[in-house]
Structure formats: structure tokens, C-alpha cells
Design a protein around this nucleic acid. Structure first.
Length: 435
RNA sequence: GCCGACGUAGCUCAGUGGUCAGAGCGCUCGCCUGUCGAGCGAGAUGCCGAGGGUUCGAUUCCCUUCGCCGGCGCCA
């Protein structure tokens, strides 16, 4: 709600946004608009956040999308229980002792939809008390809490900023199928489906399609779900997550992709946090990264502990929350990865580590048909499962590359959430498919 | 999948081999001339996750199982 003079709390507990109006279809104003209607009879609507019954007076705290509003109710009156949806018509008065300085008096309360008398836990407290599993079991309720709601709002802001940043760079938004005929990430497990009697899979990434669409638009992006049947039971893994994907043609190499990623992050971060994106994000080669992390020089990949160490190094040495690791070994990257022409065994693939966690994977891709055939052959993989994808490259594709940002990881790191499930509305993991 | 924790009231947790059960919040009732996570008083609520075993006796000890959390493998 609006925090006008008289408000005791500098930061209202429920977030304070009043950038729109109550609007149709209901003749309704928002809690934050009450100060503009002092002396008038108005209608507000929302949820019963909390009842407070005293000897001589009762209060009904109503919650709407903008914040909270206090309704003064005659002592002894029945008040609908918490989370009931109500519409309240009354007279707005200014009152210094009211939270926010205004309140609604002489109310006529209409119940629009009942709520159970007992909610499993209290939603009106500043902190949400239940442990994560209990919150997730009752997600429709727990998500109403400001802490959970704010994270989801930030995720929405981040995707909006992702879109507008790329729109400004000449990208076109695309929509690709989530039901596919083959795996994109060799090694990663897929969810199999029965597709009209044939096998099919849930897409692990829009990788192939966004590459094919580079042949149409040169620069494309997609915001969408991806599915991983990996049995990863950790605080940073989900079976379904939201991938912010981009792919662009006519690049020199992966460094052009990194520049675009840097621009995108510079567009997103101010919208969701105070974290600064350096003009030049520090970058280390994989071999150097192993040294920084103190890992064995023959290690083919960075383990989570290494990533944390590199994140700390970037903050210490460069004052940056972000750090690129480039040149991952070809052996650990998918077959469509473009090798580093100057360094055999290494790739033009990169990861972006944000506050010690792998946030983005990207790189330059192969763009010639014969290179795809060679890459699969070299890996001892059959071309057949990838036939329609690989054959497409006979059509002519520019040198290209792209990246994918893990939305939930981004929001978790920005909000300091310990678990990506805390910032996901209805997380899907190893054990949970509902609600 | 491996390793390590944990499963006791609606929520968060304490507790003990022997009148097998507590606290805070919530809930119910009462008190309190306006609350601000209100306050004060009283009260109700539990197959102490499930199955088996040890024991005269198990919520407590052991085994199995299920659930759940964290770390790791893998990855965004």
C-alpha cells in the first residue's frame, strides 16, 4: 500500500506498488488508491489478510494486489476468516492511528468466495514459518506470502527484461516444440512419451530449433520450459525449469555471444536487483580456472566446489559477481559445440558463473553439415537419431552461437534463496509432480 | 544412485525405556476504548511416520520400509 505521511513503517510489509488502477470489470479501487479518495464512498476488494478483534472495535485487514487496507468493523460483528475473498464498500477516512494513515469505515462486506476456516499455516506473518516441503504441499497458499510472491514477480521482471534487451538488439522471439523426436544433450536423461503410439520425448532444450531459426531470422530467442529427467536431487536442480535461450548468426566466435549475453544481463539485473554487471565481465580459460580452483589439471569439468572457488576469485580479484569460464574441453560439451581452432581438445564453449553457481551455458556451434557428420562420427555416435537436424545444415547456416540462462537459478541467487524451489511457483523435481 | 541427518499437535520444535506426552504460534472461549506479527487469562487438539524385533514394558534401543532434508555425481 501507499506509504503516505503518518505511516510508521518506512518499508510496508506487503510491497508497495501502485502503478495501475483497480479498474473494470468491478467498480473497485486498489488499497494504494485510498489516500486519493478521502471522504468518498469507495469499493475495494481482496482477501481477508487478518482479523483483529478488540473490545470496542474490530479490524479487517484486506489484501489486494497492491498491498493492505484496514477496514474498521463494529465490535462484535462476524468477520469472514482469513483468505476469504471479499468486496468492501465504505467511506475512506484519514486517521493517524490507522496503518498507512487511512482506513475504510461504515463497511458493507460482501463475501465473493469463502475460505476454509483453518488454513494449514499462517500467511499473515512477516516470515513464512513452514519448512519448504510444507510450503510446497500448500503452494496455492504459501505463494500468497510476500516473500514467495516477490520472487515470482522478479522472475516475471527478468523475463520481460530479457525480451526487451534482445528486442533492442534485433532478435525475434520464437516458439519451438516441446515434444521432440530425439535427445539434444547426449548424456542427459529425457522424459519419454507415447506420441500416438510412437516414442517421443519432452525437449531438454530448444537448442536444435533455435539454431534452425537462426537460418530464418539470424537472431532469435525463446523463453520456455525445458525438461530434464536427471535424478539430481539438489537445491539447484528441477525436472522442469525455465530457460532463457538466445541464438545469433554471423559471429566471429563465442566471444561475440558473450558480448550479447553481457548486454542482456545489463538489461536484466537493474530490473531485479542492485547487483552490478561489469562493463567487461572477467573471463578465464578452463585450464586457468582449474588452477584457480586448485583442481587437478587433468579434470575434464568443473565441480560445484570449483565453481564456488572461481566465483570467490572473481569477486576478490575483479569485484565481479559474474565470471566467464571459456574453452571447456570438447569431451564434456555436446557434439554441436564448435572447437577452438587454435587449441585442440578445447571448445569455443563457455559457462557464466554467477555468485558461485553455473547460471549460463553457451558457445559457438558448428554450422557446416560436414562438421556435424564428422563430430558425431568422431564420438562414435550414429547420425540417425539426429538425421533431420543434421541434414538441415546442408541448407546453409552462418557461423553462429548462443546461450541459455537458467531463470530459477538467477532468481534464487538474486534473492538469496537457498533452494531454487523457493522461487519456483510449482516446482517439479524427483519426488514432486503436484500441486 | 551413494553418503549423512530427520520424521512427536494445523505450523515450528522440545522430550523420556515405566502414572505413552509437552512449548510457542494458530484454533475455541473470556478479558482488554484502536489494533499494527496486538496483549492478558483459560481450554481443546496427538494411532510420538509404518512394520517387525529386544524387553515385564518402547514414542524412547535395534532392523526393515516409506517419507523428507542436505551434500555429491550431473547440469541451467
Amino acid at each position: 500500500m501507499v506509504a503516505p505521511r503518518g505511516s510508521r513503517s518506512p518499508t510496508p510489509p506487503w510491497g508497495s506498488r501502485c502503478d495501475d488502477r483497480g479498474g473494470p470489470p468491478m467498480q473497485r479501487i486498489l488499497s494504494c488508491e485510498l489516500t486519493m479518495h478521502i471522504g468518498e464512498r469507495v469499493t475495494i476488494a481482496g482477501w481477508v489478510n487478518r482479523r483483529r478483534e478488540l473490545k470496542s472495535v474490530s479490524f479487517l485487514i484486506l489484501r489486494d494486489r497492491a498491498g493492505l487496507a484496514q477496514v474498521v468493523v463494529q465490535a462484535g460483528s462476524e468477520m469472514p476468516p482469513e483468505e476469504t475473498v471479499v468486496q468492501v464498500t465504505g467511506v475512506v477516512i484519514a486517521n493517524e492511528v490507522a496503518p498507512g494513515g487511512v482506513e475504510l469505515t461504515e463497511p458493507q462486506i460482501t463475501v465473493l468466495s469463502g475460505a476454509e476456516h483453518h488454513t494449514p499455516f499462517e500467511i499473515f506473518r512477516p516470515t513464512l514459518s513452514p519448512a519448504l516441503p510444507a510450503q510446497l504441499d500448500h503452494a496455492p497458499l504459501s505463494l500468497r506470502h510476500p516473500s514467495r510472491r516477490e520472487a515470482l514477480r522478479l522472475a516475471g521482471q527478468a523475463t520481460a527484461a530479457f525480451r526487451s534487451s534482445l528486442d533492442g538488439l534485433g532478435f525475434t522471439e520464437i516458439h519451438t516444440p516441446k515434444i521432440v523426436e530425439s535427445a539434444t544433450e547426449s548424456g542427459a536423461n529425457v522424459f519419454a512419451l507415447d506420441y500416438f503410439g510412437r516414442p517421443a520425448y519432452l525437449a531438454q532444450s530448444p537448442q536444435f530449433y533455435k539454431q534452425l531459426m537462426v537460418g530464418v531470422f539470424e537472431r532469435v530467442y525463446e523463453v520456455g520450459p525445458v525438461f530434464r529427467a536427471e535424478p539430481h536431487d539438489t537445491t539447484r536442480h528441477l525436472a522442469q525449469y525455465t530457460s532463457l535461450d538466445a541464438e545469433l548468426g554471423f559471429i566471429e566466435d563465442h566471444r561475440d555471444v558473450m558480448k550479447v549475453l553481457r548486454e542482456v544481463l545489463a538489461g536484466i539485473m537493474p530490473r531485479i536487483s542492485a547487483i552490478e554487471v561489469p562493463r567487461e565481465i572477467p573471463s578465464v580459460h578452463f585450464a586457468e580456472a582449474l588452477k584457480i580452483a586448485g583442481a587437478h589439471p587433468e579434470e575434464p569439468d568443473l565441480v560445484p566446489a570449483d565453481e564456488r572457488a572461481i566465483g570467490e576469485w572473481a569477486l576478490r580479484e575483479h569485484g565481479s559477481d559474474f565470471v566467464f569460464v571459456t574453452g571447456y574441453p570438447m569431451a564434456k560439451r555436446p557434439f554441436y559445440t564448435h572447437p577452438d581452432p587454435s587449441r585442440p581438445g578445447y571448445s569455443n564453449g563457455f559457462d557464466l558463473i554467477f555468485r558461485g553457481i553455473e547460471l549460463v551455458t553457451g558457445g559457438q556451434r558448428l554450422h557446416r553439415y560436414e562438421d556435424y557428420v564428422a563430430a558425431l562420427t568422431e564420438r562414435g555416435e550414429s547420425i540417425e537419431p539426429y538425421r533431420s537436424y543434421v541434414d538441415s545444415f546442408k541448407l546453409g547456416f552462418p557461423p553462429h552461437g548462443g546461450f541459455a540462462i537458467g531463470l530459477e537459478r538467477l532468481i534464487a541467487r538474486v534473492t538469496g534463496a537457498a533452494n531454487v524451489r523457493e522461487v519456483t511457483a510449482f516446482p517439479r523435481d524427483l519426488h514432486r509432480v503436484a500441486p
